[in-house]
């Protein structure tokens, strides 16, 4: 239901001022309704489903049971057997998201710093280029890296044709790669690996990192750095004592935002991560859709993922306030 449905006023009959007044009163309610319909209702639906009960061999029914939450922490066979499978998956969600967001921000920071020192027109050109790369969806990016890392047409082919594979075999380093799961008996391989997963996830959010850091870095007063230099500080000291403290807040905020964004990554993890290291997002999909129609357990995992992300954001906020107060 949109707000407009509620106003059935023949426009010509009333003075325009009255109509304007109605609008300004109704607008906040309209937004509240929109937030309610688009955010709260789906959330409460997921919450309600998470208490549902799975019927073996069929779908699920509404219920009020905590079994799904129990299963998340100790597995379905508890108390006979305990498994931390699902906590482990949650752990991998966080692990990938933390590492990939940190890598993205750490590599975007020097790039954006250099970017702000370019001419105005060059800056604009770069920003447009980076913005346009955001139009690529996760699926396209994963597909691209999939090809770049595949045996016959990607990086392993380069390794083989340049003789690098043979050199690795001759020097004995190849065995180390095999032990790390980065090679099969014939050639190096990068799928599936943590390397490919984290690379793709960082790549995915890198443009966001640049765009989020750009405003803060471009507003930075260059005279501070110059003053520090005239007082004898070297580059590293300038970065550590002048630049980083002045962009601490946007840096931290960007990392947190990218981290939350990456918690839900699905395609990159499905394609590039070993099933031993699959995340909660993948597990949610497999339960809700896929072969087993266990929406309640999928909803439970979604609620727990959301709550964990909420805790992380709160902790981040507190940490930030604590650091600012010092």
């Amino acid at each position: 239901m949109s707000v407009a449905d509620g106003i059935d006023v023949p426009l010509g009959d009333r003075p325009a001022a009255a109509t304007r007044l109605n609008w300004s009163k109704l607008l906040p309610w309209g937004f509240a309704g929109l937030v309610f319909a688009l955010c709260l209702v789906p959330f409460f639906l997921v919450l309600a489903i998470s208490f549902g009960r799975k019927v073996e061999g069929a779908a699920w029914v509404w219920d009020f049971t905590f079994e799904n939450y129990q299963r998340f922490f100790v597995g379905t066979l508890w108390p006979d057997e305990v498994t931390f499978l699902y906590i482990g998956q949650l752990g991998y969600s966080f692990w990938y998201a933390v590492i990939a967001s940190c890598i993205a921000v750490l590599t975007a920071l020097p790039f954006t710093l250099l970017l702000t020192r370019l001419r105005r027109s060059a800056q604009a050109a770069w920003l447009v280029f980076i913005l346009s790369s955001l139009s690529l969806s996760e699926v396209f990016i994963v597909m691209g890296w999939d090809i770049l890392l595949s045996n016959n047409s990607g990086l392993p082919a380069l390794f083989k044709s340049t003789g690098l594979t043979q050199w690795l075999k001759d020097t004995g380093h190849f065995q180390t790669l095999r032990d790390w799961g980065l090679a099969n008996p014939r050639n190096v391989k990068f799928k599936t690996s943590d390397f490919a997963t984290i690379l793709t996830m960082s790549y995915l959010v890198w443009p966001y990192a640049v765009i989020l850091l750009y405003p803060a870095l471009s507003r930075m007063d260059p005279s501070h750095s110059e003053a520090a230099r005239t007082m004898g500080a070297n580059n590293w000291q300038v970065l550590r004592t002048v630049i980083l403290p002045s962009v601490r807040l946007p840096l931290f905020g960007t990392t947190l935002l990218l981290f939350v964004f990456l918690l839900g990554t699905y395609v990159a993890v499905t394609v590039f991560a070993d099933p031993a290291k699959h995340t909660t997002a993948v597990a949610i999909y497999q339960n809700v859709r896929g072969a087993n129609l266990n929406a309640p357990f999928g909803a439970t995992m979604a609620v727990i993922l959301l709550v964990s992300a909420g805790i992380c954001l709160t902790l981040g906020h507190m940490l930030n306030r604590w650091a600012a107060a010092r």
Binding site: L77, P275, N294
Partner: peptide, 19 residues
């Protein structure tokens, strides 16, 4: 596969995860 759906799925997923 249907009668023991949850059991087989979790046992299989545990095997894949090495957990």
């Amino acid at each position: 596969y249907l009668d023991k759906e949850t059991f087989i799925k979790e046992t299989w997923d545990k095997m894949l995860a090495g957990a």
